[in-house]
Structure formats: structure tokens, C-alpha cells
Amino acid sequence: MPDLLEIQGLEVEVEGKRILQGVDLTVPTGEVHALMGPNGAGKTSLGYAVMGHPKYQVVGGDVRWKGESVLGTPPEQRARRGLFLSLQYPTAIPGVTTANFLRSALKGLGKELPARDFLKMVREQLALLKMDQAFLSRYINDNFSGGEKKRMEIVQLAVLRPEMAILDETDSGLDVDALRTVAEGVNRVRSSGMGVLIITHYQRILEYITPDRVHVMAAGRVIASGGAELVSDIERTGYDPLLRAAGIEEAEAAGAVSG
């Protein structure tokens, strides 16, 4: 059986500027992988490119989902196949209520529910993420606090039930209790066998959601991969030793190398 997500030699440009320099990364079905790396390494760009953001032009390599390339397909099609990306900075859409947004998403995914079941499910998930029911009729992410946006991403994850979630710094900006709530939320969905690629700067979330593998990105590529122990190494020594081993100058690690 092919792996769930295979990223092979992925090269990506934004407005003519090279950002990913050949990323290799594979997440087999049901596994949790962590992706770490200094600011500007290209982690968010990788998530966008995998999800099919039109600004992130793939100029080399491949993204394969269950053995099949997804390049050239629009984001909604990737979502329909089972991919989900939780954004580092979730977008607000004024005037579109959370309920309406989620209903449209479920419809797009072909998972439409009768109105009553739909409301019941969303209400349940809001409660599990310790969010007020009033969020149902608020405009999605509009004037939400940073932490509320992150929790809403997990509410969506739970409602939409993808086969794999890329979580881009979903733990950033959360207080200790919210972090646990969010981690538990992810774990509940994961129990049904969902794969996870969790982008983070912190060890903490990985204590709740234990990764099978850890990857480190710098300067637009993966420079190290290992087991969970890699996380505590980084926590202790920072990225320096890994960067030196990869022959990357510090200035280069943060911020992309121009192609």
C-alpha cells in the first residue's frame, strides 16, 4: 500500500522567488510526524504547497497522496480526498457565520447532514473545545482572539474528519489549558486513524500528541529526521548543531535562499 502523503524533491516559488529547495518527507497512514525548524525555514510554505495554495507554485518534485500526484488539482479537490490544513493564521471571513461556513464545507466534501444533526454535531464539538455556542452565529474567525481561532480550527477538524491533518503552529498562542484542550481534540480525531503532520516550535504539544517521527527544516529543505528524541535535543541545544552539520549558515536558515 502506498504511503498516505509523500513529498518528493518539492521545489516551490512565490512570485518568482524560490522558497522550497527540494523537500522530501513521507507520512505513512495513521502516523504522527512533527515538523520543526527556525523561523522562515519554509514550514508554512510547505503546508500551503501541499494544500494547493495558488501563490505557491510548484516548480519541481511531486506531492503524492495515496500514491497519486495531486499537483494541478485545486485545494477543494485535495480536501475532498482527505487532506486538511490548519492555518498558522486562520483567515477571517466577515459576514459568513461559522455555521454557514461549516455547512458549506461539509456540502463541498459530500458529507452533508440534515440540519438538526449538523447543529447537534457542531454544538458538541464546540463544547468539547470549550467554546461558547455563540460562536456558531459569529462570523468565522472575525474578531476571534488568537487562541479562539486555533480552537476553531480544531472544531473544524473534528467536524470535517479528514484522513490527514497538517497542523501549522496550532499550539502557538494557546494558554496551558487551551493547549491541552486542543491536543485532546486532535487525539480524539486521531483515534480513527488520521495521519498528522504537526508543525511546531515547542516540545509541549508533542508531549500530548506523541510523534512517530520528527523532521527539521531549514533553508527550504529537510535537514534532519529522527525519532521523538530529536525534539529534546533541539530543546537543549537549539538548531545550531543541526544547521552546522547540514552546512547552513545561520543567516541562511532563516529566510529563503534566493533561487
Binding site: 494544500m51 494547493g52 495554495h53 495558488p54 485545486p74 485545494p75 477543494e76 485535495r78 480536501a79 475532498r80 486538511f84 490544513l85 492555518l87 486562520p90 483567515t91 471571513i93 466577515p94 459576514g95 459568513v96 454557514n100 461556513f101 458549506s104 464545507a105 461539509l106 456540502k107 463541498g108 466534501l109 462570523y139 473544524q156 470535517l160
Partner: peptide
């Protein structure tokens, strides 16, 4: 993109944003 990444087609997304 946000709408599309959640499974909403581009056309439906535009409609949703205009409605909003």
C-alpha cells in the same frame, strides 16, 4: 483559499464571500 482548503469549490467560495 481558506474556503477551498475546507472543501468548498472556488465558485461556491466566491458566492459565500459575496453573501457575507
Amino acid at each position: 483559499f481558506y474556503c477551498q482548503s475546507r472543501g468548498i469549490t472556488r465558485e461556491e467560495a466566491r458566492r459565500l464571500v459575496v453573501e457575507g
